[in-house]
Write a protein that binds this DNA or RNA. Structure first.
Lengths: 224, 224
DNA sequence: ACTGTGATTTGAACTAGTTCAAATCCAGGG
DNA sequence: CCCTGGATTTGAACTAGTTCAAATCACAGT
């Protein structure tokens, strides 16, 4: 799959990286649509068709973008994952996500439009992005597993994936959020996080058990 | 805004309608991407630039598509809205939506991709589609208002919008549903509908009141 | 140094959405 | 009938993503 770590990167590898970095910079500077493949190639100092030698399409550059964001998200979330309480951890991770995406807000809509398409390969549900998806869900697994006091065992297994789905929802909300510096999304996170925690706690109450069980059953049933 | 009803449609009006019908037919036949503006113009017997005289962009044809689907949805939902129970009404309306969208499933992803983009104007949240959105929410208002026994007053006001959001969620699920004839989406509807009803009923229990209130408060707060 | 081979690189061409300035059409007023 | 102004219609051109066949390069083996 990859070279022994520490080996100097092959020429092709460096060119590839150069293209990604150039693309990301231009995306942030002028947005997605207005960054043409020709502009990327020019800025990177090579020909358009050469860029296409490394990336099948412009969409695939978007996938690289996701991968990069993902890396930064984990980095930015590290601090929050050092805390104890479930709510603090979840809130921190969600805010970290919004923070790393912030520079791209103006045109993130184009990305989401690409990503939502089931055929696009950069869809978070597609086979191609299995790795990225696992990584993202892993982040929320960390949120759940590391919480003290521990999260109810009944929901622990399914919670990471549900939280990841919720995070996709937050992203969708964020994309449409036109408030100053996306403050509304920040507020949504602050308000919804303790609410989620409360629901989880509630699910333990005797009267709620059957409902929780049913919901989890529904989730599992519907997942495949 | 419009002519007196019954007046014979102007020439421009007929041309416009011809383009929409042709486009919809080709969309269903070959999908969105593979239906070129040139093909639409050819099939309708006019020049490409003439089509652009009536529609600012290909995206705008997608908006016409939504409007048409919306009309058919209401038509298809009529029967379900003749029933009494809330669950039956809601389930019927959701199934009706899936039914009218079915012929377009293979390439609906492209449409959703266009629609999810906040700038695109065909986003369900955009100003341009206020009318369509109101109509869609209206459908769910009918679901709620006409139910017997009546839905709890506490949630009645906000429920239509929430159900519409849930419907968008179902649509998203449907778009990604690769099961035969989208059976999984059908199942999701069948399973989730009574669950929603149960939650609403639960919200009346004394212990739940504060949570319900909080949730509705959150919804209102976050909406603007 | 020389050559064959696979990895890179490139210019030119193709496709499809979009724009534009120049016709063309058409109805109402003279 | 002719003229005029607005509504339609059009061919040609522009842009941007993508493809392709033909160089060019780099290096392993001779």
């Amino acid at each position: 799959m990859s070279k022994p770590p520490g080996a100097p990167p092959a020429h092709g590898e460096r060119t590839r990286e150069l293209i990604v970095q150039t693309a990301l910079r231009l995306f942030a500077e002028r947005g997605y649509e207005r960054t043409t493949m020709r502009a990327i190639a020019d800025a990177a100092g090579l020909s358009v068709s050469n860029a296409y030698y490394y990336f099948r399409s412009k969409d695939q550059l978007v996938q690289e973008f996701y991968a990069e964001i993902q890396r930064r998200h984990r980095e930015e979330a590290a601090e929050a994952l050092g805390r104890d309480g479930f709510v603090d951890r979840l809130r921190g991770v969600l805010h970290a996500g919004v923070t790393v995406m912030a520079p791209y807000h103006d045109f993130a809509g184009s990305f989401v439009g690409v990503a939502i398409n089931p055929r696009s390969g950069s869809s978070p549900f597609s086979d191609e992005s299995t790795a990225a998806r696992e990584a993202a869900i892993g982040l929320f697994r960390d949120v759940v597993e590391g919480a003290k006091p521990a999260v109810d065992r009944q929901v622990r297994a399914d919670l990471p994936e549900l939280l990841w789905l919720a995070y996709l929802g937050v992203t969708l909300y964020w994309v449409h959020d036109t408030s100053y510096e996306q403050d509304r999304t920040r507020r949504l996170i602050d308000l919804a996080t303790p609410f989620v925690a409360r629901l989880i706690r509630l699910s333990r109450l005797p009267g709620m058990r059957p409902i929780t069980t049913d919901l989890l059953w529904l989730v599992r049933k519907v997942r495949s």
